[in-house]
Amino acid sequence: MKDIFVGSILACIVLLNSGCPKSCIEANYSFSVNAQVGPDRDSINVGDTIYITSSFPAKLIDQGTGAEINYTGAKKIGSTLGVGKLITGEVVPVGAVFDFSYISIKGNVYNERSIASPDAVQQLTYQENNNTYELKVALIAKVKGTYALGIGNGLSVERNNSKNCEKAAFDISISNTSQHVYYYQTWRPGYTLTASDLKRLYCFKVK
Results as ranks from 00 to 15, higher is better:
A138H: 02
Y102C: 00
T49R: 10
A58N: 12
V137A: 04
I77D: 00
L60H: 03
I87G: 06
S114R: 04
I140K: 15
G19V: 01
N131K: 08
I105C: 08
H180V: 11
K199P: 06
D48Q: 03
V137R: 08
S101G: 15
R188M: 14
P39A: 11
T192F: 06
D42I: 02
Y51A: 09
T72N: 12
T194E: 12
A148G: 13
A74M: 08
S18Q: 11
A74K: 05
C12K: 14
Q36A: 03
K59R: 11
E26P: 00
Y71L: 09
L15H: 15
G7Y: 03
G150N: 12
E134W: 02
G82Y: 02
S30D: 15
K163H: 03
T177E: 07
F5K: 11
F31I: 10
V109D: 03
I61K: 15
P39R: 11
G78T: 09
N176G: 05
S156H: 05
I52K: 08
N130C: 07
I25V: 06
L135R: 08
C20A: 12
Y110N: 11
A96P: 09
G107E: 07
G154K: 09
Y126F: 15
S79P: 02
G66Y: 08
A138L: 04
A35K: 12
D42T: 04
T125C: 01
N164V: 09
